[in-house]
Design a protein around this nucleic acid. Structure first.
Lengths: 192, 192
DNA sequence: ACCTGAACACCGTTCAAGT
DNA sequence: ACCTGAACACCGTTCAAGT
């Protein structure tokens, strides 16, 4: 076999990749998901082409930036799946998902747009998230606390929509928990 | 007094303004609220500076584009306010508001962003809309069909958030009515 | 193998020069 | 009074040239 070993990168390449990610985290935090890639390359003191070599699309960069948070959320879903209180577990997960989607301005939009786009590097992460939510949802439905006519995609969309509200109008941030409560009440089984 | 009469415009000015609006309607329909202003000027066969003279900001152009629809919605709210069925009137108005906010891609976002920005030309229209919704809301609350812990801004935010969902992920369009129903159920008075 | 920056085709916005 | 387009300062993306 040839001596190729994909995990071996040249030292400068590896260093550049990490510089870019570190800088990008800060810039995206300041400017949101539409931050200037040129600006990121500049602040990372790296050629513009270098940024493109490591992250061929903006979404690829975002994906690298967000993967850690996604993994953490997936882990939380796993843990909450063990809980003896399915409804409370679902509520807690959604609360954390909404908080996470509010981490960067524009993130909720990226998440939603990715639903339709299977090519997006973020697609896998979103799928994982929706499946995780779906499992918690089914448990809560089996328990009878949540209506049957809802699926994981509905839930994911509503959670992102709530994040989006404070994304667009930060002045409504104080209402976020309240609006979340309203939506959750809509999801509970109607009294028959 | 001086002979100034602001309603008199030079014929070419008036014609240009209308050309721009007509073209902008089409382009914004195609490309959403972030459409290229240059492109609009080009297609209207008008100098770029002319567009800026008539509409100093993108929001000013949007406002002119949307005013008609806003007025129509305000009229609907007025008419529905006469209805003998406050709850049904509110639901119908929200349904039309959500449909209207889905007219152009990005419109829901403009509406939400305008809540915090009093300088925006769209601010007056949004205020009018929220007041209209607020009056219908209060009637439905007085009737006891809607919870008391909601105000017009909450309602406006939720309606825009629902529009935004299909804005971002058109594939979820078929779920829109369903999600609207869920949210409405959350707004109804909980059984005590 | 990787980095670099010039080059290209776009933007939004302003403003001196024209009629 | 109004129109025009060049000028400026930005973008994202690609790619020939370097090491």
């Amino acid at each position: 076999m040839t001596g190729e070993s994909p995990k071996e990168q040249r030292a400068d390449a590896r260093r550049n990749r990490e510089r870019i990610l570190a800088v990008a985290r800060g810039v995206v935090h300041e400017q949101g998901t539409e931050a200037s890639l040129r600006d990121i390359a500049r602040r990372a003191e790296v050629g513009l082409g270098t940024l493109y070599r490591h992250f061929p699309t903006r979404e690829a960069l975002l994906e690298a930036l967000l993967r850690q948070g996604f993994d953490r959320l997936a882990g939380r879903a796993e843990a909450l799946g063990e809980s003896g209180e399915p409804y409370e577990a679902l509520v807690e997960f959604l609360r954390e998902l909404i908080g996470g989607a509010g981490a960067y301005r524009g993130l909720a939009g990226s998440m939603m747009a990715t639903i339709s786009d299977e090519q997006s590097p973020l697609h896998a992460s979103c799928m994982a998230m929706r499946s995780a939510a779906g499992r918690l949802l089914e448990r809560a439905q089996a328990e009878g606390r949540i209506r049957e006519d809802i699926d994981g995609t509905d839930l994911f969309a509503l959670a992102n929509a709530l994040s989006w509200i404070t994304d667009q109008a930060p002045s409504l941030g104080s209402r976020r928990d309240h609006l979340f409560g309203l939506v959750m009440d809509g999801l509970t089984r109607d009294p028959e």
